[in-house]
Design a binder for these strands. Sequence first.
DNA 1: TTTATTAATGCAACAAAGTTGCAAATCATA
DNA 2: TATGATTTGCAACTTTGTTGCATTAATAAA
Lengths: 126, 126
Amino acid sequence: MRSTPVRKALLKILSKDQAPLSAFDILAKLHAQKLLANKTTVYRQLDSLEKQGLIHTVRLSDRSVRYELAGKDDHHHHLVCVKCNDVKDVDFENHLSRQEKNIEKSKKFKILRHSMEFFGLCFNCQ
Amino acid sequence: MRSTPVRKALLKILSKDQAPLSAFDILAKLHAQKLLANKTTVYRQLDSLEKQGLIHTVRLSDRSVRYELAGKDDHHHHLVCVKCNDVKDVDFENHLSRQEKNIEKSKKFKILRHSMEFFGLCFNCQ
DNA sequence: TTTATTAATGCAACAAAGTTGCAAATCATA
DNA sequence: TATGATTTGCAACTTTGTTGCATTAATAAA
Ligand SMILES: [Mn+2]
Ligand SMILES: [Mn+2]
Ligand SMILES: [Zn+2]
Ligand SMILES: [Zn+2]
């Protein structure tokens, strides 16, 4: 794993932004700072950073894909504003893990992971 | 809204299958019964049926999109088997609606809709 | 410091899943 | 059956990535 300009810039961009960014956003931000990376490179770096556990891929059910820096309290869910597209974190684990046990028993289904998102209007957009 | 062969066959296919189907699945099933419809037609019919409220589009966070017949007890969530791709319904509303109120208050976010899926192993695949 | 090694990059082509414009076919009804 | 609005097929296009391959560049070895 080498330390290249794209890799460094990419991590910096993700660490500055609190909301997860799309690959397109990231590419635009790189170009804005005169780092004219190719989209293939960006996708490959995102893959690589994900495999290293430095970032997480956020796949929302509206089919958009975004990337966020991995934190310590890792697993969480998102509030997605349908007007301005802002994304905020929200925690829900306690409530979910209790219910998952019920589901596993009643449905005879072994849950490995879940996804949950809330789509609506952020404070500014209401 | 006309009653065309594709439209009729499409509704019949969706009513036979309990698990939601992808556009590709549907196209394959149409072709299997010698109805050689074009993919554009299938997508347009799915759009139209969705607008009529006869079917629902299920957008999973793994980015797959499936279609299911609209029922009376409409809103629900899904258990998705990561091995055989089977999808089963699961209800979770009571638990969620209580928590959503907390979120709306504490995060000042107006929730319009949510999505939740559980990915794991169905009984047969465990 | 120079060289060698291997990862990272750019580019073009490809791919899956849809979408759109337009002309041709078909359904419904008068 | 003639008419007119819908539906359909087809080709081209879009978005979001992915892949092969030749070139460049970071780093470790000499
Ligand atoms: Mn997050
Ligand atoms: Mn369902
Ligand atoms: Zn907003
Ligand atoms: Zn299964």
